[in-house]
Design a protein around this nucleic acid. Structure first.
Lengths: 196, 196
DNA sequence: GTTTTTTCTGAACGGATGTTCAGTTAACGT
DNA sequence: ACGTTAACTGAACATCCGTTCAGAAAAAAC
């Protein structure tokens, strides 16, 4: 046997990424074999190599796409009029974006050590760029005298860690709606950095 | 060849755990082979099985010990006189304990999905127990009217995520001392939950 | 000094791993 | 209708995996 019915490049490529994303998020990059991904797509392992050079490149592409999406979505937001409004918008955006992509988020945070040195550097660059968005907001808030914090960089990381943490426990089937979760986190973020 | 000079059970056991902890933290459980661990200990792979039933048990033992240490160290703290003092003590304790054990912390947060169902349930139980300590403090603060928060459980998780995040960036060789980091985080945690 | 026990080696087990490739077939262009 | 191309199969490659075990040697017991 060889080429199967209804097979074409346009659908297999995305299918591979979708299967890999789900499997990597569930079991981890190192624990998932190319044969498992192929089986999930409905194809033999060799066929994967028509779409990707190797397993490492598949992981990198998933993470790169996720970071590009994140930065693009962030840039698409309309600029806020004040630092306070900007921080609220960032908080709600971050929570919403991350809850929409639990698998991609999981991979982006857990599989950094499985990237080659070059690939890691690229992802880290994008991550730092995103962090910079929040740093800028907090910095503006300092200038406007509406925020107060001892260390700008530490505050940036603390806020992002707190917000990203929502993905470890939130489930759509749970008691709280997304907007309720956003409200709760926004209150805490605001209090954490507000001028008292 | 067979038994080597200076070999004895009392030192090989701890060596295995130490090597496994470092390698698991660095490359991930699934990416580290028993032969790599054995080589790091200075022994052949087969010798490991005099000390552990299998690889899974090795991972579980590392995580179980970490959680037991965490809960024991927490219980050893003297009780605080107020909710505010208790939250400050918890904040400083959590940061200090976690910065002392970067490898163990990394494993405890990253390798949960590589635990068997039974082992996962046990670790999860201990993690929930630790979370409960913070929930209790926040609850007392609500009763004392010094804290205010919309959702007790969400606040617990948000604070823990923020505090644990320190392990992802802090280095002893960096610009900030540990007590400076503790001060900064304590200020943010306090503000996040204080009554306004 | 001899025997017993503990600790480890080295080889082996069946199976899984990422990746390559010649060959086969479906889909497409004309 | 026919030739070309794109998509995939299935087998093979060398290498690694976790785990077992008979046997050897060092340490401990007597």
């Amino acid at each position: 046997m060889a080429r199967t019915q209804g097979s074409h490049s346009a659908s297999t490529g995305p299918k591979i990424r979708a299967s890999a994303q789900r499997l990597f998020a569930q079991h981890g990059y190192a624990a998932v074999s190319m044969r498992q991904i192929a089986a999930d797509v409905g194809v033999q392992a060799g066929a994967l190599y028509n779409y990707i050079p190797d397993k490492q490149a598949l992981l990198f592409e998933l993470m790169k796409r996720h970071m590009d999406d994140l930065l693009a979505a962030r840039c698409a937001q309309k600029p806020a009029e004040s630092a306070l409004a900007a921080l609220e918008a960032f908080t709600r955006f971050h929570i919403g974006f991350h809850l929409d992509r639990p698998d991609a988020v999981f991979i982006a945070y857990m599989e950094l050590r499985n990237l080659s040195d070059d690939n890691f550097a690229e992802i880290e660059r994008l991550r730092t760029q995103y962090e910079g968005e929040l740093t800028q907001i907090l910095d503006h808030g300092l200038a406007e005298r509406v925020f107060d914090m001892t260390d700008l960089k530490v505050a940036t990381r603390a806020v992002i860690a707190m917000l990203t943490g929502v993905t470890t426990w939130y489930r759509d089937s749970g008691a709280l709606s997304r907007s309720e979760v956003e409200d709760i986190y926004w209150q805490m973020v605001h209090n954490a950095v507000r001028l008292t």
